[in-house]
């Protein structure tokens, strides 16, 4: 069993627990039947802009989004 390993496989792949649980949640959402499936997937949309700052200067913001048309 994977959970018995010294380091869980997802952490070895450089994921945090949040990423791991999100992937699992997405799997569950995809298991829903049709009218609920699109509803659940469209509810959980990701969109925000991140910009890192080094020494008091902002770098150009990157936009994290899962809707490609925006």
């Amino acid at each position: 069993m994977a959970s018995n390993a010294a380091v869980p496989f997802w952490r070895a792949a450089g994921m945090t627990y949040i990423t791991y649980s999100n992937i699992c949640a997405n799997l569950v959402r995809n298991c829903l039947k049709e009218p609920y499936k699109t509803e659940a997937i469209s509810r959980e949309r990701v969109h925000f802009a991140v910009s890192k700052w080094t020494d008091g200067k902002p770098e150009t913001p990157t936009i994290r989004t899962d809707t490609p048309d925006v």
């Binding site: 990701v46 802009a49 910009s51």
Partner: peptide
């Protein structure tokens, strides 16, 4: 780190967890 444009879509857990 500065994060903006959070509320373009309705807030949800997936977004905040990412």
């Amino acid at each position: 780190l500065v994060l903006t444009e959070l509320q373009k879509n309705p807030l949800n857990y997936t977004q905040v967890s990412v």
